[in-house]
Design a protein around this nucleic acid. Structure first.
Lengths: 211, 211
DNA sequence: GTCTATAGCAGGATAGAC
DNA sequence: GTCTATCCTGCTATAGAC
C-alpha cells in the first residue's frame, strides 16, 4: 500500500513535469534527464513507470490532456449561457468563456493549448487519441447545437466549418499569445481576456458586420 | 565566379532543405546531418556557410520566409478583389484567397505556415524579425483598410482584433489541415480549398449570421 | 569551398545492487 | 520502487588535408 502510494506519487509528478516541459518546448527539445530532475526522481524512473520516453508522452495525453479536455467540454455544456439559450451567439460566448476564462488556471490552459497546437500542426499518435475521443465527438455535438438556428436544410459540412471557425479564434487567441500581445500592445490580464471573449462572441455573431 | 556560383548553390540548397525539414519536424528534431544529407553536401558545410545550426535557422527566415511573406502581402494588395473594392468582405476574401490559394505552391504554403505556427506558439529570435518586419506593419495596414467601413470613431484595438480574427481562420485552416481533414472528412483539393475561401469570406462578413 | 576525421558532449535505455 | 553505473548511439562543432 505504501509502495503503491509512493509509486503513484512518482508517476504523478513525472506526468505533471513531463506535460509542462513537453508543452513548453516540444517532445524533442526535452530530455528524460530534465523531466526526472524536475520531478525530483531518478533517471531510470521514466523507463520503470512508462517503459520509454514516447510512451510517457502518450500517457500525458491519456491521463492528463484528455480528461482536462472533457472537463472543459463539461464546463461549456453546463455554463449558464448555454443553459439559458442555444442560439449561435450563446454557443460562441459559451465556447469563448469556457476555453479562455473557464475552469483552468492560466498555466494549465497554456499547457493545454500548446500541446494541442503541437499535435495539430505535427500529428503524432497522440492526435489519434485526441481526434477520436475528444475532437470529433465535440465538433459533431457543436454542429448539431448550431443546426436549429442555422437551418435544418443545411449540409453538415457547413455547420462543421462554422464550428471549426469559432474554435479557430479560441485556439489562436490562446496559443499565439505572444504575437497578439506584440501586435495589440495588450497583456493577457483579466480585462483583456474579457475583451477577447466579447470580441470572439461578437465576431462569431455578425463577423465584421458590414459590406 | 565559378567558386561564387558553387558557393551560392550550396547555400541555396541548404536553405531549401533546412526550411523544409525545420517546418516539417521543428528545430530540435532535425539534425545538421540530416539537412546536409538532403542538400547533398558535406556535414561541415553548414558551419562553413552559416556558422552554426541556429544561425541557419534564422537565415531561413531572413532569406526565405520574410521575402515570401512580402510576396504574399503584395499579391493580396494587388489582387483584383482588393483593387475593385475595399469593403471588409473584399478584404476577407482577398486575404483568404492570397493565403489559401495565392501565389505559393502547396508545399511552399505548408512550409510557410508550419514555420509561422511554430514561432507563434514558441517564439524564438526569429519571431522578433517576423513581428517587426512583417506582422506588425501588415496588421496595421489591414486595420487601416478596415477603418472606413467599420467606423472612424472606433478604437484601433477593435480593428486589430478584427484583423487578427480573420487571420486566425486563415492560419488555422492552413496548419491544422490534418485535423480539419479528419473532422470534415474532406481532403485539401482545389474544390475544398475554394469552399474554405468562400466560408472564411462569408464568416468574416456575417459570422453565423443569426441571433 | 569541400571533405575527412575526430573531439567532446548529451541523449535514451538497461543491468544489477539495494 | 529506487538508485548508480554504464553502454551505445547520435549530436554539434572544429581542425586540418586537399
Amino acid at each position: 500500500m505504501i509502495q503503491d502510494h509512493k509509486h503513484d506519487m512518482t508517476q504523478e509528478r513525472l506526468l505533471d513535469k513531463a506535460e509542462a516541459l513537453f508543452a513548453q518546448r516540444g517532445y524533442d527539445a526535452v530530455s528524460v534527464r530534465e523531466i526526472t530532475a524536475a520531478a525530483h526522481c531518478n533517471l531510470a524512473a521514466v523507463n520503470y513507470h512508462f517503459q520509454n520516453k514516447k510512451n510517457l508522452y502518450l500517457e500525458v495525453f491519456r491521463a492528463r490532456w484528455i480528461p482536462r479536455a472533457r472537463r472543459l467540454q463539461e464546463f461549456f455544456r453546463k455554463s449558464s449561457v448555454i443553459q439559458n439559450a442555444t442560439s449561435p451567439t450563446a454557443i460562441a460566448q459559451g465556447l469563448a468563456e469556457a476555453f479562455l476564462l473557464g475552469p483552468l488556471s492560466d498555466d494549465e490552459r497554456h499547457r493545454h493549448f500548446q500541446l494541442m497546437v503541437r499535435e495539430l500542426s505535427q500529428p503524432s499518435e497522440a492526435l489519434e487519441l485526441v481526434a477520436e475521443q475528444v475532437m470529433r465527438p465535440f465538433f459533431t455535438e457543436l454542429a448539431e447545437m448550431l443546426r436549429p438556428a442555422i437551418g435544418n436544410g443545411v449540409e453538415k459540412q457547413r455547420l462543421m466549418l462554422d464550428a471549426l471557425s469559432m474554435f479557430a479564434m479560441v485556439l489562436y487567441f490562446n496559443f499565439a499569445r505572444v504575437a497578439v500581445t506584440r501586435i495589440t500592445g495588450r497583456e493577457y490580464d483579466d480585462a483583456f481576456k474579457g475583451q477577447l471573449v466579447k470580441h470572439i462572441t461578437e465576431f462569431s455573431r455578425t463577423g465584421l458586420g458590414v459590406g
